[in-house]
Structure formats: structure tokens, C-alpha cells
Design a protein around this nucleic acid. Structure first.
Lengths: 221, 221
DNA sequence: TGAAATTTTTAGAGTACTCTAAAAATTTAT
DNA sequence: ATAAATTTTTAGAGTACTCTAAAAATTTCA
């Protein structure tokens, strides 16, 4: 069985290659795991016999199907636990990442089967990220960033790009959550911020940064 | 923070001293953790600066109040997770030990507060063992072993002495669980087995070993 | 009390990680 | 095309555990 450290390396490689569309390089893995590049090289060399990824010196690394399978199951476990923490225990969406990061390493297939069923086979986690099914398939959402909407276009919030605590708390502050309705009132050229109407009630100005990190499903009029 | 290994050592020492009423010796700790006595000595030496226990060479070890506090919280976490696994996820009582053994090491005070509340502040785990409260106090049960009952005495099952899988499955086989009613019909001198009436319906003969490991709360007539 | 049995510790080494500093390879920019 | 900047690897060492074999201390018992 893979150690917790090994699991974290595989997950980091998966996330980096998913974002980059290419091999994950040493520095990126080190940054992702808050470790040194030297440690990463060392670990990659030791792990390379285990068939989770292809590694060529100076070329970076990409996962094999075995590695992808492992990463996907970890993401499944992480997101199911997040649903549990929010839906059942009453945590808010900005509090669950670190706890799920621990829970995802608990090893029991039966546990995940039962947890999934207990939660009603959820398709999305509390941040709107898709939960892969037992076979590793993600349900993809039809989404765009708030930033990409034109004036007067409407939609509802279906996710956030990064689920870092400060951003989630910023959204809490404006009472923006999954399902919140958004309509673009105007785009402000100067700094690319946007004036929006929230839940048909409140007018807000959101920064460019915030708008690029909010995923919206457009309402077809 | 304590490592998982450290936590397991402290818990083992707690369980051994609780049973023995004396210091935990090296061999006992090694047996409990499936490791070698040499490793235990080494670990005790390294840990002894951390104030969890008193250690004297060749004399064994006993916990300080700091160590007892830690062990108690681990037992609390373990047993709360067992309740979750049985009551919410539908595991049976013989399946939950190993999973709870992993879950108990997840580090989050808020998680345990919320879990406890979600479960309705249970006082006993699925094997009838008391769950210490947040302050570490155990609710003690008024219990005797089935073996100690006299002919015709009655009671209900409130716990098991060891919760090893084979014993629990033996009980499953006879449909004996927490709350099952028991009446002693006769004691068989030859091998100290007992003939009992289960739930006012079924007559069974239970071995001496089984009878000594079943905890009963007597029904006062 | 002293020999035998048992328990515990020490010695020495191995694995799975971690690190910093320096060297090597690659990429970028002129 | 070569120098500079960047990335990656190597070298060497440290920590937190693990082990087996042997030595030392303690306990048991005749």
C-alpha cells in the first residue's frame, strides 16, 4: 500500500499536469507540497519503480493509468468527506479542506462505498467541484467564469476556481454561495471589476480577481 | 503535535496499565503494538523528554496526567467514530475497529465536537464500551460477566470484554447483541459452560470463554 | 544463595523520508 | 552562439522510526 507521502506526491502530480497540460516539473511539485526540489528529485527516483508515473531526468513527470487511478480515488475520497463535513456536520465550505486532507488517507474501500451511499451519491463537493464516481469518471459542468459574462447576462454560481480560505471567506462576507444568482450590470473598464446584481436584490462591485475565480452556469433567457 | 506512532504508544501504555493496575513493561507494550522490545526501549527513551509518562530503566512505564489526557481523548475519538460507522453508515460491530483505528488520528478538535453532537452525545460505543466525555470522564456501567450470574438470574447484554472480530462474529451467529436478554437456565459444572435463555425465546449453550467475555446488567426482579 | 530463566537494554544497521549547499544540465536572452 | 538565469540533480547529512543479535540486569526458583 502507498504511504501518505506517496499519495500526496501522486495527487500533486495529477493536479499539476491537469492544470498545465504537460509534464509536472520538479519545482512545481516542490511548491505544491511545500518541500524542497531536492526532496522531490529524491522521491521521484525512489518511487519510479512503482509504476505510478514516467520520470525522465530533467524532463519532469506524468502519471501512468495506475497513477491516474490512484489520484482520482484520492480526489473522490477527499470530496466525499468534504460533503460529509458540510452537509452532515455543519462545517462551512471554508473550513473543510484541511480535515478532508487527512480523512482522504484513511484506507477502506467499504468505508467509501458506504459513505457515498449515505450522502446520496453526490456529484459535486461543497465548492462545486465534481466528485469522480467509483470508476473515476468526473461529471463535467457547463460553466464559464463570471468575468466572461457580457452586460445583462445572468447565471447562478456553480463553483470556485481555487478553494483557498480567504477567497471563500470573501464570498461568505457578501453572502455568495453555490446557487446564488448573478446578473452583470456593468463592466468597469478601468480595473476590470464588475457591478453585479446578487440574488435579484443586492448590487455589488466584485474585483477582477474575484470574477475570474467564480464559476457560473449561464441562464438561457 | 504527537505523531501517529507516539499516539499509539501512549494508548497502548494506557490500556496495559488500566488492565494491570501497575506499570506497563517493555514486552507488554511490544506485544500490544506488534513490534520488538528493542524498538519499545528505544522509543521510550526518545519520548521520555515529552512528559507523557515516567520511565525508569528495567521498571516499566506509567502515564502522567498529560499522557492520560492524551490517551483518553484518543479513546474518545475512536469510540465516537465507531458509533458513526455503525449508526450512520451501517457497518456491523465486528467491522469497525480497524477503520476507527485510522480515523482516531485525524487531528481537529472542531471535528470531534461536531461529530459528538451529530451522533447525539452517545455514552457508549457499539461494543458497549463507555465513551469518555470532552473532559475525559468515563460513565461507568453497572455490569457483571454472564459467567458470574447464578441459576435463574436475568439481565441484558451491555458489552463485551474484548472486541476481537471472531468473538463478535460468534455472537452475531447466535444473534446476540447489545440489549439482548439473557437468563441463566443452568450451569454445567464439567466445563463451566452455561445453558441460557436468549430473548425469552431460544435456548443456547455458551462456552465458559464466551460467558466470561459477555457483560450483563442484571435485571432486579 | 546462586544458577537458570526472563526481561530489558545496547549496539549497529536499515528504510523512508527530510534538508542545505554545490554541481550539472537546460533554457532564455542577447 | 555564448553568457546568464533557471531548473534540476547530486552529495552528504539528519530525524523518526524499524530491526536482529548480543550483552546486561532482574526475577525466579531450587
Amino acid at each position: 500500500m502507498a504511504s501518505e507521502t506517496e499519495e500526496n506526491y501522486i495527487k500533486a502530480i495529477f493536479k499539476i499536469t491537469e492544470k498545465n497540460q504537460g509534464a509536472a516539473n520538479t519545482n512545481a511539485i516542490a511548491a505544491h507540497l511545500s518541500t524542497s526540489p531536492a526532496s522531490v528529485t529524491d522521491m521521484l527516483k525512489r518511487l519510479s519503480s512503482k509504476d505510478y508515473f514516467h520520470y525522465e531526468k530533467y524532463k519532469g513527470v506524468y502519471l501512468t493509468s495506475k497513477g491516474i487511478e490512484m489520484a482520482t480515488q484520492l480526489i473522490r475520497k477527499h470530496r466525499l468527506w468534504e460533503v460529509f463535513l458540510v452537509d452532515k456536520l455543519g462545517f462551512s465550505w471554508d473550513q473543510v479542506h484541511d480535515i478532508a486532507e487527512q480523512l482522504e488517507h484513511v484506507d477502506s474501500d467499504e468505508l467509501i462505498i458506504k459513505l457515498d451511499s449515505y450522502l446520496g451519491h453526490p456529484k459535486y463537493d461543497p465548492h462545486g467541484d465534481p466528485i469522480p464516481n467509483a470508476e473515476g469518471k468526473f461529471t463535467l459542468r457547463n460553466q464559464v467564469t463570471l468575468q466572461s459574462l457580457e452586460k445583462n447576462e445572468k447565471g447562478t454560481v456553480v463553483g470556485v476556481r481555487e478553494n483557498d480560505t480567504p477567497f471563500l471567506q470573501y464570498l461568505n462576507h457578501f453572502n455568495i454561495k453555490l446557487g446564488t444568482k448573478m446578473q452583470v450590470l456593468s463592466q468597469i473598464d478601468y480595473d476590470h471589476s464588475m457591478k453585479v446584481l446578487v440574488d435579484d436584490a443586492v448590487e455589488l462591485v466584485l474585483s477582477h480577481k474575484a470574477c475570474s475565480n467564480l464559476f457560473i452556469k449561464k441562464t438561457t433567457l
